[in-house]
Design a binder for these strands. Structure first.
Lengths: 202, 202
DNA sequence: GCATATATCTTGGCAGTGTCAAGATTGGGG
DNA sequence: CCCCAATCTTGACACTGCCAAGATATATGC
């Protein structure tokens, strides 16, 4: 009935999964629904992903790679920025990326996904962390928050950007806070995370 | 077989659910497993909660109430603190509470839960937000971050504390950051969120 | 060109899940 | 004492992820 050899089923499963998550959340994702949507038998996706958790892990890995490269592109466009300014740019880009990639971001921050994840995800995550850590190191040499260690600053910077993005993308939270995110809000928030009093805001 | 009229089944279901989430995450929670664990028929929990999502919503509501009152208790122990210091205390208490209530916190921050939630959750959340907003208002009168509006500061403060707590409770993240959370880390992180340069650190 | 080998997909089935309907049991108030 | 409302059981349904066995299509070797 359904024709064999879909061609690039693996990629289509990934795309369809993200679309489905966009509409109804990670919980609303079903491999069987994806299969039906793509006109393929219910077990076909299972041949490309070891399990549903594996599919989600692949999405998380890809998403971290995407986020990291998005940040690096932004940074590359401002070659004469110092470390503190770069750090602020990264925070802004990270929040903006999360808001315009809600589905991916919700999978990344889903506490359940990190439970069954694998080395590929760990690698992508640690590359992301490394990029931020480098900027923090340079910023610190410029006098950024001298009272705190690099390790604590890492937790602070990544946690703050991550959490603010979460708040902005969560319907319930953003409703409770009564905030509409304008484009200028990203700048203000990035300026709050990376304080602007020490240097000219970039 | 299983005896009728368990007595306080509703509460036991809540407790057992949290225990189960502690061990295997929200995804590992199963109403049927809970029922079996409590020696009760598989549909019994359904008579106390309209759905699984409803059970999770109840947990979220309770958890926000718990977090709010924990923060208020801490604040009440320091009656002579100013707004900025109170805000810092709240951040510290919030992060500490999240780390010692990982299961509850993981449900609160689960993006899927906020999808099907109800008015009771909204009320508990908005009370939590209100408490923080009040401290921010007072802090602002004391000169706290005058360049930002109260609305933006709300997103910043709640988002940052929330996100840092998430990072600290997420095994994958905290492993990537290579951080062990000592007791003094909470102070340092709270001092970073609510900058200490304007007043004496509380 | 053809047979074989490998990758890809289908079919069928299993155990587990949440949810509903209908009936059984219990305890308390009239 | 009896009935009623609350509570729980039983049985069923549709859905889920996953696995094994077989079918099909593409690629490879000769």
């Amino acid at each position: 009935m359904a024709k064999y050899h879909h061609g690039n089923l693996r990629q289509e499963v990934l795309d369809c999964a993200i679309e489905m998550i966009t509409e109804s959340g990670v919980e609303g994702l079903s491999l069987r629904k994806v299969a039906k949507e793509l006109g393929v038998s219910h077990a076909a996706p299972g041949h490309h992903f070891k399990s549903k958790a594996d599919l989600l892990a692949v999405i998380v890995r890809e998403s971290y790679d995407l986020l990291t490269s998005t940040m690096l592109e932004e940074v590359a466009q401002h070659p004469d920025a110092n470390g503190t300014q770069r750090l602020r740019m990264m925070g802004r880009t990270c929040m903006r990326w999360a808001v315009s990639n809600k589905a991916r971001f919700s999978v990344m921050t889903n506490p359940d996904v990190s439970r069954f994840t694998e080395d590929a995800v760990r690698a992508a995550l640690s590359e992301f962390v490394g990029v931020v850590a480098e900027a923090i190191g340079e910023a610190k040499e410029e006098g950024f928050y001298p009272q705190a260690s690099v390790a604590v600053l890492l937790v602070y910077a990544i946690g703050a950007a991550n959490g603010i993005a979460t708040v902005l993308t969560d319907d319930l939270m953003s409703a409770a806070l009564g905030v509409d995110v304008g484009e200028e809000a990203f700048d203000q928030l990035a300026n709050l995370i990376v304080d602007t009093r020490d240097d000219t805001a970039g």
